[in-house]
Design a protein around this nucleic acid. Structure first.
Lengths: 230, 230
DNA sequence: TTTTTTTGTGACAAAATTATTACGGCAACG
DNA sequence: CGTTGCCGTAATAATTTTGTCACAAAAAAA
């Protein structure tokens, strides 16, 4: 799933260039001309990153970035500011206002993409690092390992995420749709029955240590992670 | 283990900004509002670096820094001072305050992190110059040599840096992006796939002594250095 | 009991990820 | 100059993971 990038740029030529470069690099694009339209878009959906020009008609890029970073629901969205060459002061202020990086015009496509990737990988990982437990079962997000009494369990990435979710949300029933939202991500086009298959795979991975009963089926509703027997 | 940074800053906005930036860059954070609380914290545990504001309620940042440097048990802790532009800048620059470096507000995240890393490299040599071990494997940063039972292993500079990072950050999974940040530097324009190639080269170098299994692949996440078998 | 609905299971092809190899560029050095 | 060693990338091979389907099994409803 390609991350979406919101481009806020009033100059059509630059905007199209940006869109072109980013599309070439498999990013999804949303384009707007000013800060006001950008805020409209943000109400609908949060992009993976915002690319905003320093100079904009109406609200400036700096003020826009400030607003984004000040708002709790959007503060985690990375922002890269586009600035004209010159003025070191501008760069500093651009960063100080909350932008995570800047790119000076003219820029090379390579640099732009590199900076976007760098910022995203630094800002995206926001996961909890706490070890989750369920009886003797330990899930360590830092090591990315699951173990029972020191013995490691083997499983794929999705099974790991699913188990992590269950272990951190025990005793409560979740529908297949909810599990898709949490584990697969809110806008993934995946069949609900796929959840069944992964629950099965997870149970198989847990089976060797008799922990397969921890994921219980709640008929007509979904699944639950529980210590109590069915 | 990431170094801990003690932030001494009374302005909540600046404090949060600092904490935010540093957390993004893999530092552990302790935050306090004034010099007195900072001294309390120092009794419990020594941080890897202290970031202190020039202006503080109660004891000033300068006096605080002087105290830290005067005390034998804390004199080795690097101190970076935060100053506002124009705020007795020359005096601070004159190094009379005992700090090892200073950063003027407004600052860019890049500059802040760069200075922190620079100061830590400069002032905490005994830390990064310590011989790292992994079983029989020894890595000597001073001699720039890797050996097993006295036999030297041959490898290039990048493989060496990568191995050094892994040996000093065992058991934790790192994404390719994080490895690029740490080993190649925060703003290098290098493809993530390059990490794969260097892991391969490193494994090949370690292969002759059967240490190639120490770098483990964590599918969908990255790599990990671990003594435990997969 | 029979029918209907829901869930479990194994297999499979497509997609994604990682391993491995090869190559051109570049700087240091003779 | 040519050589050498290292760097980063690209191409390709090997491997794992992913999502879906068809069908079996189980549970609920009729």
């Amino acid at each position: 799933m390609a991350p979406t990038i919101l481009i806020v740029e009033d100059d059509p030529a630059v905007r199209e260039l940006l869109a072109f470069i980013l599309k070439q690099n498999n990013f999804e694009i949303t384009e707007v001309e000013d800060a006001e339209s950008a805020q409209q878009k943000l109400l609908q959906k949060h992009p993976g990153l915002i690319l905003v020009d320093w100079m904009l008609p109406g609200m400036s890029g700096v003020d826009f970035a400030k607003q984004i970073k000040a708002n709790k629901s959007t503060t985690d969205i990375p922002i890269i500011m586009l600035t004209a060459r010159g003025e070191e002061e501008d760069k500093v202020r651009g960063l100080e206002c909350g932008a995570d990086d800047y790119v000076t015009k003219p820029f090379s496509p390579r640099e732009l993409v590199a900076r976007i990737r760098a910022v995203m990988r630094r800002l995206v990982p926001h996961k909890s690092d706490e070890v989750a437990t369920f009886g003797d079962l330990l899930l360590d997000p830092v090591r990315h390992q699951v173990s029972v009494a020191g013995k490691l369990l083997q499983m794929g990435p999705t099974e790991f995420k699913l188990l992590h979710f269950f272990m951190t949300h025990q005793e409560r029933v979740y529908s297949r749709g909810q599990l898709l939202d949490w584990v697969w991500g809110a806008n993934s086009f995946v069949e609900e029955r796929t959840v069944d298959v992964y629950v099965r795979r997870l149970r198989t991975a847990l089976e060797v240590h008799s922990y397969d009963a921890m994921i219980q089926t709640v008929r007509g509703v979904g699944y639950r992670c529980s210590a109590e027997a069915q």
